[in-house]
Simulated scan of single mutants.
Amino acid sequence: MSLAMSNITRRFGQTEVLRGIDLDVAKGELIALLGPSGSGKTTLLRIIAGLDWPDAGNLSFEGQDWLLKTAAQRKIGMVFQHYALFPHMTVRENIAFGLTVLPRAQRPGKAQIAETVQRLLTFLQISQLADRYPSELSGGQRQRVALGRAMAIEPRVLLLDEPFGALDAQVRRDLRRWLRSVHDSAGITTIFVTHDQEEAFELADRVVVMNGGVIEQIGRPDQIYDHPATPFVARFLGLTVELPVVMKAGRAEAAGFDLTALPRRALPEGPATLFLRPADIQPVADPAAPFHLTEISSTGALLRVVAESDSGCRIEAEVPRRDGHGLETGMNVSLCAVAGQIFPGLASQRASSPVAAETTPHALKENRL
């Protein structure tokens, strides 16, 4: 492993911001730290960068104890949300800055610095901006310059803290695709912080979902999306419909629901909670069903429908508009779940109790808490 963390703990006063973080990052890997505000993502990034120190735990890079090294000795490249460019320096001078302030014994000559800067300007496709000042650049261009400055020192690890948070949606989409191609070309071990799951899933090799100072799940983007390991991850990733069910012989059952499309689960018999995305629920006309449609609204591509039962159960679903022509308010429907995640017991009474998506040792490792 390139970077290894074990039992990283950090407190601010009585608040435990990190509670025993264990994480290994392979050389050349791109990792996303994903979670809501206050989950500990930025604090962990600052500890890796040498800008903060843990109260307990170990941090090593290629076998070297990084807790014995300063930020400068770790040779970290860091990109912040708000760029932190020097306004009085041109793009060329901003990118060169990290090289010009190295100790004399490590500092390259002027010609070598100029060559490195020109190579990065070309690599990042901003050669035409070399003599402009930050005030003359767009947000996306400033972010490219910030990345160039971080890469100029040939960092061992590149850290990005909400790198696209200050940009509009279209620029964010364009830049993250660009960043992925830059990462693949440069091969730098990269860790970035985000609260945007779409950003994390599109960019990262693996996603680390954090909550309340702990890691809830680690895995590949598609694995986490399809098989959330805890109720928190399920809710965070949009499984907002929570349905009490009963497990019988590995099958979930609930009145008014057709759950036969869900695979059998190795769960104890008795009460459980099924987490569903609204788009994974299909209403099917059924005069004998206990649910009836009370609301139907269109967003253009989708129909958002609400189904209620006489017992007070209220379910929201999303249906492609072209598939919902026969739906009308007042009609009775059964609800077919095409995908979902089940946790034993009542989820509201549980902290975290993952159901492994697979049963192989590799899958259990990837879905660890």
Rank of each mutant, 00 (worst) to 15 (best):
D174I: 15
L175P: 06
L175A: 13
R176H: 10
R177E: 12
R177I: 12
L179I: 10
R180D: 01
S181N: 14
V182Q: 14
D184Y: 04
S185C: 04
A186K: 14
A186N: 09
I188A: 05
T189A: 05
T190A: 06
T190L: 06
F192W: 06
T194P: 08
D196P: 04
D196Y: 08
D196T: 09
Q197L: 06
F201C: 04
L203D: 00
L203G: 00
A204L: 04
A204Y: 05
D205V: 02
D205R: 03
R206L: 04
V207L: 00
V207A: 01
V207G: 00
V207W: 00
N211K: 09
N211V: 04
G212N: 02
G212V: 01
G213N: 02
I215L: 05
I215S: 00
Q217P: 03
G219R: 02
G219S: 08
P221Q: 08
Q223T: 12
I224C: 04
I224E: 00
P228T: 00
P228K: 02
A229E: 07
P231V: 04
P231S: 05
V233W: 10
A234P: 07
A234S: 12
F236R: 01
F236S: 01
L239N: 02
L239P: 00
L239S: 03
T240I: 11
E242M: 13
V246K: 14
M247H: 07
M247A: 03
A249D: 15
G250C: 14
G250D: 14
G250R: 07
E253L: 13
E253R: 15
A254G: 11
T260S: 14
R264S: 14
A266S: 15
A266G: 06
G270A: 11
T273L: 09
F275G: 09
L276H: 09
R277T: 01
R277D: 06
P278H: 13
P278S: 11
D280I: 10
D280Y: 14
I281G: 08
Q282C: 12
Q282I: 15
V284T: 12
V284N: 09
A285M: 10
A288Y: 07
A289P: 05
P290H: 10
H292T: 12
H292M: 10
L293D: 05
L293F: 05
S298Y: 09
S298E: 13
G300C: 08
A301T: 11
A301S: 15
A301L: 15
R304H: 15
V305F: 02
V306Y: 01
V306H: 13
S309A: 11
